[in-house]
C-alpha cells in the first residue's frame, strides 16, 4: 500500500497517498471533508450547474481505499456533506452505495461545521470520537494531544527546479495530525496560512498526497 508511516501518541499510523489516514492496529480508516453533494448545493443556491459527478468520484475513491485496506472501522471526520440539505438531497443510488460501503463495518460520522446535525444515513453520529490515546474531531483544538482532525484542507507548495507543485497534504507534529480534504470538489489552504502555522509546532512535517507520498518540513 502506498503510504507514509509515522507515530502519534505511541500509535502507528499510515498517511495514504489518497488522503486517507490508516490505523492498522485498529483496522480503522479515517477520511475528512468529503463534502458530498457540493455540486447540488451550489446549483440550489442559484450558482453554476457544475458537473454532477463529484459525489460519485469521491465514493469511487473511498470504495477503492476500503477495498485495499478492508477496514473494519470508518471515521468520516466532519464536513462529510456540503450541507444538511445536500445530505437529504443525495440521490437514491448514492445513498444505497454508501449503505453498501457501510455493510459489515462500524461507521462514524463526526459533525463538521457544514453538517452540524445528524443526517439520515446509517452509522453513528458523534460530535467527536475518543479512541485512547487518540481523539477524532473536526476542528483542531489548541493544547490537545493525540488529536486527529480535518477542516482546514491543508495543501503544500514545493519548489523544485523552478517549478512549483501544489498538492493536498497531511500536517503532522507530535500532538496532532490534520488531514487533507478527501472530497473531489475541494480546494485547499496553504500551510503558510496563520491558522495552520499557528497551530502546528515548529518541527511539524507535511506529507504530500499523490502516487507516492513525500515528506518535508511543513512550509511556513
Amino acid at each position: 500500500m502506498n503510504g507514509h508511516g509515522f507515530t502519534l501518541a505511541g500509535t502507528r499510523l499510515v498517511a495514504l497517498g489518497s488522503g486517507a489516514l490508516w490505523w492498522p492496529d485498529r483496522s480503522l480508516l479515517c477520511v475528512s471533508d468529503l463534502h458530498l453533494g457540493k455540486s447540488e448545493r451550489i446549483a440550489r443556491k442559484g450558482g453554476a450547474v457544475l458537473p454532477p459527478y463529484d459525489t460519485r468520484d469521491t465514493l469511487n475513491r473511498l470504495a477503492a481505499d476500503l477495498a485495499r485496506t478492508a477496514a473494519r472501522i470508518v471515521v468520516s471526520l466532519g464536513d462529510s456533506f456540503d450541507d444538511l440539505g445536500a445530505a437529504q438531497a443525495l440521490p437514491e443510488a448514492e445513498r444505497l452505495w454508501i449503505a453498501r460501503l457501510q455493510a459489515g463495518r462500524r461507521w462514524v460520522w463526526i459533525e463538521g461545521n457544514h453538517d452540524p446535525g445528524p443526517v439520515e444515513m446509517g452509522g453513528t453520529h458523534l460530535a467527536e470520537l475518543p479512541l485512547p490515546p487518540l481523539t477524532f474531531r473536526h476542528i483542531a483544538r489548541t493544547g490537545a494531544s493525540g488529536e486527529i482532525s480535518g477542516h482546514y484542507h491543508p495543501k503544500v507548495t514545493v519548489r523544485a527546479h523552478r517549478r512549483s507543485l501544489t498538492r493536498p497534504a497531511f500536517l503532522v507534529d507530535r500532538d496532532r495530525v490534520i488531514l487533507p480534504a478527501y472530497g473531489t470538489y475541494t480546494g485547499g489552504l496553504r500551510s503558510h496560512d496563520a491558522a495552520l502555522s499557528g497551530l502546528m509546532r515548529a518541527e511539524a512535517v507535511a506529507i504530500l498526497t499523490g502516487a507516492q507520498p513525500h515528506v518535508l518540513p511543513m512550509p511556513r
Binding site: T7, L8, R159, A160, H161, D173, E203, V205, V215
Partner: peptide, 18 residues
Amino acid sequence: QETDRLMRAAGLAKTGAA
C-alpha cells in the same frame, strides 16, 4: 529529490513525525 533535500536540511531525514 527536493523533499529529501529539505528533510535532510532540517535534520528530519530519518524520523517520521517529529
